[in-house]
Design a protein around this nucleic acid. Sequence first.
DNA 1: TGTGCCGGGAC
DNA 2: GTCCCGGCACA
Length: 338
Amino acid sequence: RKSSEELDMDKVTAAMVLTSLSTSPLVRSPPIRPNESLNGSWKEGGFVPSSTSSSGYWSWSAPSDQSNPSTPSPPLSADSFKPFRMSSQPDDSIDEVETSSLLFDEPIPRKRKNSMKVMFKCLWKNCGKVLSTAAGIQKHIRTIHLGRVGESDYSDGEEDFYYTEIRLNTDSAVDGLSSISPVSSSLGSPPPFPTQDANRPETSCAKTEPKLMTPLSRSAPTNLYLVHTDHAYQATPPVNIPGSTKFTPNGRSFSISWQSPSVTFTGTPVSPTHNRPAGTGEPKQQTHTVLSSPPRASFGLRKSRGEGKKCRKVYGMENRDMWCTACRWKKACQRFID
DNA sequence: TGTGCCGGGAC
DNA sequence: GTCCCGGCACA
């Protein structure tokens, strides 16, 4: 059993990482509808980042405390999310709006024009179902995990917490979505072979979704693979902090683990409550992994020039009409192939 | 400097 | 899709 100091250190460490991540230029944010950022679903959810805690930690509190008493209070106490606050934060200059903007209002990264296939992956413990449409995954979560069989068409947005978007590059991705898994790797280097298990025994992801963590490093295409979610805690940490930590908001265990220099975040409600009051507004579970690849081996290399005579040399410029089409078009000669 | 041809534009 | 050409790398 850890001492309270150790637990505090875990929290502080987690807070440092999260703060660093949230301010990283690589932070991504979920697409949100304009009117829902603070007053819509998040308000209903009772979660607005707040810096009012005098403890100096990040905290979450209901936005309605001052402005809208009719809004249900969140089930999570402010202390539940203490790890989100950097104890060393010099001041509270990052106010609610700025913080939420930082976390949630950033523009969606521009998608690549093509070859990015978007899938949606259920993050429910021991599920990992992957569907091709958001509606499908939402329905799956509603019916299977939230037990809303009779209201399968109704969505209050809660399902959003339990799935993540996966974009994969179909240029190089091979068949088999079952091999998709959010695994981090160092930028510019191939994904390390199973790195997540041996050194990080505490990650809930490894504990609860082991199948999600292993296949990619073995079967993923080597040159480019990208898994991305549009959820909140996504960034590349500026520092290397090996390890993982856990926190337990309102009795629900979350864990955060990271691998440097990229990071994997995992928030997994260990005991999802089916009748959780609408809008408890817990932070979205998320995993975020960006695997980037070294430049293609062929990058910068040019096919060596053919040594044989080509149409140009054979027929000469004056007989250009005798050249093969490719030579006429200044393409690789098709008549005198090396 | 001549040649092969990639990359990209025009149609 | 065809056709053309700027420009680069290489011999």
